[in-house]
Simulated assay, not measured.
Amino acid sequence: MDFTLSTRQGRIGTVVEVAGDLDMSTTPELRDQLRKLVDSDTPVVVVDLTGVGFMDSSGLGVLVVAYKDLRERDGWLALAGVSQPVRTVLSITSVDRVIGVFDTVHDAEEASPALS
């Protein structure tokens, strides 16, 4: 499967839709897109991983860095549509205890502190 990345305006923030494997060859594109969003003071980012069947440590690292960068700016990052193999990586590394993991983009948006 080819790697694709797109962004769209969600209900309360930006949704980054990712499809394909997140590995050393594809994560730089995701890192650059997330960095642009952080630098533009986007307060809420939901990364939709519905189309991702595999993620290695480089993908995990990009998500953790984006989470920290957004948090430092009083922003929020969530993950949505996470497949079982990717959930396993998040669980083994305990990242799912720090970054919110939701079944759908809608569920993530509903949980956003921006709605509080």
Rank of each mutant, 00 (worst) to 15 (best):
V46E: 03
M1Q: 05
L77T: 03
E29M: 09
V65L: 10
S116I: 12
M1L: 07
D2T: 13
V105P: 00
D21Y: 03
G13N: 05
T104G: 08
E72W: 12
E109F: 04
R31S: 15
G75F: 08
P113L: 13
L63A: 10
T14D: 06
E72D: 15
L49Q: 01
H106R: 10
F3I: 05
T93V: 09
L77A: 04
G10L: 12
R71L: 13
R87D: 08
I99N: 02
V82N: 00
L34R: 00
D74E: 15
G75L: 11
T26C: 05
D107V: 12
D2M: 08
V64R: 01
G100I: 11
D39R: 10
G75C: 13
G20L: 14
D21H: 08
S94R: 15
T26W: 01
D2Y: 04
K36P: 00
G75N: 07
D107H: 14
L30T: 03
A114E: 09
D39I: 09
S57L: 11
T88N: 09
P43H: 05
L37R: 02
M1P: 04
Q33H: 04
E29L: 13
G51N: 03
T27M: 01
S116L: 13
V38M: 02
S83W: 05
E29W: 00
L22F: 11
D74N: 15
P43E: 11
V44P: 00
P113G: 07
A111C: 06
M24F: 14
L79H: 05
G10K: 07
H106V: 14
V52I: 09
D69M: 09
S116P: 00
E110H: 10
V101K: 00
V65F: 08
D107K: 06
V15F: 08
D21V: 08
L77N: 01
D103R: 12
Q84E: 14
V82C: 07
Q84L: 13
G59P: 06
V82S: 02
P113V: 13
A19L: 04
G100P: 05
S94N: 12
E72Q: 15
M55P: 03
D39W: 03
K36L: 14
P28Y: 12
R87P: 00
G20Q: 07
T93L: 06
D2P: 15
M1I: 06
A80T: 12
V62T: 15
R73W: 08
Y67F: 15
